[in-house]
Every structure is written in structure tokens, then in C-alpha cells.
Nucleic acid binder design. Structure first.
Lengths: 201, 201
DNA sequence: AGAAATGTGAGCAAGTCGTTCACATTTTCT
DNA sequence: AGAAAATGTGAACGACTTGCTCACATTTCT
């Protein structure tokens, strides 16, 4: 950030700028993301934007940083300990759906389209590591052992599968579709659970 | 097309243009897709490109048309009749991986980023319908009945899940990873198969 | 040879867009 | 209240992008 907002008024300005940016990224993708458009949608002059963000990239970084933090926080609240695969899957899907309900396209755009000064894609980024080991832990829990490399592959697959279903639902504007959510829960449950537990879902 | 290529030479020219376009879309996304760059990568003058494509959009449409035709053709060769879920899943994954090995990012860019004169996203497009009913048929086969609406939801979920896993693998340049493929097969098998068949995978 | 098909690429015309800056308004501090 | 600091404004620059044309060369067909 170029300048730290000190008064409440300027903090609100920064907030609306970040939100407008997220909205545009989600709705129009990286192509539609221009500083002037963000400022316009935020109802703020372009000059104000550049008071707090030195350049365009720093704004994307701010949006990304906030979004990833939120995602992790939401997910971390769902634990696999002591609940059945079906329950865990249901809670997880609910959380992921909720996380995608405000800016449905944001996650994909941030990961696939938008460039960044840091290196988010690369597997060693803090976000990737935390995200993956969360899933690996869940997998290992239901396999009743400590996480190992094989669990990490399974974690990738289940995480990417969920990602795909949610992302495509978002494209069709159907993240809230209960039928889709039920089937997704079933998919996760079957993959994580033991054969004996399948019928109850 | 503005003009139909009549000689072999010009047909080759059109071919290299389409391939160069696919390469750029796959590697750089819609942002990097400029007519001048496509012509340059194809080793052809920009003028030649405009001999056969009236404008930029018609070139994307040509690329998309070819890609979707190829995808359908590859998939249609894998049938669910008479094979176990595990076998079907294995063949399907192999086919999808093969289809993504030349231009790993192309599919996603065509669906998510690139605009089109026609309406591919909309659920009534010929491609979407054929694609979905293929999966619905497979689901219904293993449920031992005619396809019904519930199977279409399951079809969407499994198709989008595969899509997500492949797409994320492509981003990491790991579509060929055998471990990932094994797990993906397992995911599909469990989802399609019956409980009794799970242990054998 | 003549005609048709094909290929060339410099360059135009029309944008686009990140960013600045001189100035206005509001809030805080003394 | 008055000065100083913080915040907000938006026209406009200037550097760059890019889809596309056209006058002309080269190759192939008849």
C-alpha cells in the first residue's frame, strides 16, 4: 500500500475499492478489470484508488490476499475428527458453497487468470500448502493413520474435484442448487468413507 | 470463412493458423490471443490469416468447433455397456487425459474466457447436451435403468469433477501423473459403482 | 502466357488504460 | 478558530495495443 488509511472514512474507501474489485474480477474476469472501472463501480475517483494502491497489481494482491485468508478461515472450522465422512462432506460442501456465494467467479479468476507479484500457483505457496494438508488430514483421518504422500494425492484429487463442481455450478449460476449439493456430498462421502457407510448417505 | 482454400498449400496454411491459435489460447489464454501473434507463431503473414478468417472471432469459433468435435469423438468411443465401472472409469480417464495432452489449457480457456458469436455456455448448446447425456447414459447404465433427471444431476457432478481434476493437473503440468490418474479412476469408480465392487479397485 | 489463387507486411485508425497532478474538501490537532 | 494533515477529485496525458486493410509480390493452375 502506498499510504495507510488513518481515518474511518478512508478505511471505508479502501474497503469499497477492494469489494468493487472483487465484484469485477468475479463478473468480468481479468479482462474487465481496469483501475478506472473499479474506481467507478466503487463510486470513488480514480485518484483515491491510487492514494492507497501504488499500482494495479497491488490491488489484485490485496483482493487475493483477503480472499484466500477468508477461504482458509472458513474451511479450518470444519474438522474431520469425530464425525462420519457423510457429515464431514455435508459440512464441507456447505462451507465451500457459502464461500462462493458472494463472488462466485472470483476464486477461479484469481487462480487462473489474474497475474500476481508473488507466486501463488507454485506448489510451495503458503496457501497451497495449508489448503492441501487440510484435505490430506481429512483423508488420513478416515484411513485411520498419519498423513502420508499417498494421502496428498488423494487430497489433491478430492480438492480439485470439488473445485470443478463448484466452479462449473458458479458458471451456470447454480451454486445454490440443492440437488447438485446432495450429489457432491455423495461423491465426497464415497471417496472418503468406508464401504460399510455408503448406504446411509 | 471469408474464402475457401482451394489448393493444398492454402489448406496447410489454414491448418497451421488454427494450430497456432490453439497453442496460444492454451498457453497464454484469451489475453495473449491477438491475430498478429497467431500469424507470427504460425509463420504466416497477418494478411494470409485474414484471407481465410473474416475476423478474430471467426478464428476462435473455428478453433472451438474443431476442439469440441474432437472431444466428443474421443469420448463417444468409450462405452459403458458390458464393462465394469472400474474399467469404464479407467478408459474414460485415459481418453480425457489424451485429449488434454496436446493443448492442456485449451478446453478451459474456450469455455471460461474466450467469447463466441454463438452461445456455447448456455445449457442448450448441442455440445453441452451431447456431453451431458453421454455421462447420464453411463450413470443410468450402472443404475440399471433408463436415464432420468436425477441421473443428469449425477452426470453433471461427475463430469465437472473430472473436469476440475484434469484442469488443475494441467495447470501444474501434471496431466500425465499416474498417481493422480489412479486416484481419479478410483473417484469415478466409487461414484458410479455399487458398494460391493469397491474393494476390488 | 494469362488468370486465378495465394502470400506479404508496413502501417493506419481507433481505441485502451495505467497513472499523475494540481486543486478542492473534510477532519484532526492545537 | 485557524493551521495542518488527511482525504478526495477527475480531466487528461502519453505510451501502448491491436484488429484489420490494401497495394503489391509470388506461386499454381489451365
Amino acid at each position: 500500500m502506498r499510504k495507510e488509511p488513518r481515518q474511518a472514512r478512508s478505511r471505508a474507501t479502501v474497503e469499497t475499492i477492494v469489494q468493487a474489485g472483487a465484484r469485477i474480477l468475479s463478473d468480468e474476469g481479468w479482462v474487465g478489470f481496469t483501475t478506472n472501472r473499479v474506481a467507478e463501480l466503487a463510486g470513488v475517483s480514480i485518484g483515491s484508488l491510487y492514494q492507497y494502491f501504488p499500482d494495479k497489481l497491488s490491488l489484485v494482491d490485496a483482493i487475493r490476499h483477503r480472499h484466500l485468508d477468508d477461504s482458509i478461515a472458513v474451511m479450518r472450522r470444519i474438522r474431520a475428527d469425530g464425525v462420519s465422512p457423510a457429515e464431514f462432506a455435508a459440512q464441507l460442501v456447505q462451507a465451500v458453497v457459502a464461500a462462493h456465494s458472494v463472488y462466485p467467479g472470483l476464486h477461479r479468476v484469481l487462480l487462473d487468470e489474474a497475474p500476481s507479484s508473488e507466486g501463488y500457483r507454485n506448489p510451495s505457496s503458503a496457501f497451497e500448502i495449508e489448503y492441501l494438508s487440510y484435505y490430506a488430514e481429512a483423508v488420513a483421518t478416515y484411513r485411520k493413520r498419519q498423513p502420508n504422500p499417498a494421502d496428498h494425492v488423494a487430497a489433491r484429487v478430492i480438492s480439485d474435484a470439488i473445485d470443478g463442481v463448484i466452479h462449473n455450478a458458479a458458471r451456470r449460476g447454480a451454486v445454490a442448487d440443492p440437488a447438485m449439493q446432495r450429489e457432491l456430498v455423495r461423491l465426497i462421502t464415497l471417496y472418503l468413507g468406508e464401504p460399510g457407510q455408503i448406504r446411509e448417505s
